[in-house]
Amino acid sequence: MHDPNRRLPGERIFSVLMVAVSLFLFYTATQISGLSGLAEPGSFPMFATGMMVITSTIITFKTLRLPHSDVHGWKSVFPGLVILTIILMGFYALALQPVGFLPTSFVFLTIANWVMARGNPLRAALTSALSLVLVYVVFRLVFSVLMPEGIVPEREILAYIGSILNGGVK
């Protein structure tokens, strides 16, 4: 749990970063339609980002005054597993379009499962394949969510299976 009277590792950087982001967004908001008028498209964004600037600045000053937390080290704040998972998801997102949903998801599930369970990679691959089949049936077949196909010619395969079910290849 977060202790409001102690400062965690990285909290200072985060607060300052939020101020920077808020300032940047506020600047962008002022560029939308300028400072004229109450009912301009930029009026409300300026109000919202202005609030962000004010509150993030107050938060930063408060945070800077807090004593350093002695209980938490960097490691307990960002365990290796969390960092690894974030990196893994980043790669997943990048590979999704070019490689396609099925292979990327399989690799992602297997590695994540394997790392988290610290178990048998084969078992991880098997559980992943099973869950992926389930997900595929529900999302792709029942709900027609067309995830990127990538290198797997899914629609051709489905049509082929369909034509077999429909009485063999004509």
Binding site: M89, L96, A112, N113, M116, A117, S128, S131, F139, V145
Partner: peptide, 21 residues
């Protein structure tokens, strides 16, 4: 957990995609 979390992450990705493809 090792089975549940990867699956939640995967579902999150598909779910976000499915909103507007």
């Amino acid at each position: 957990r090792a089975m549940l979390f990867p699956l939640i992450l995967l579902l999150s990705i598909i779910g976000a995609f499915a909103v507007n493809n």
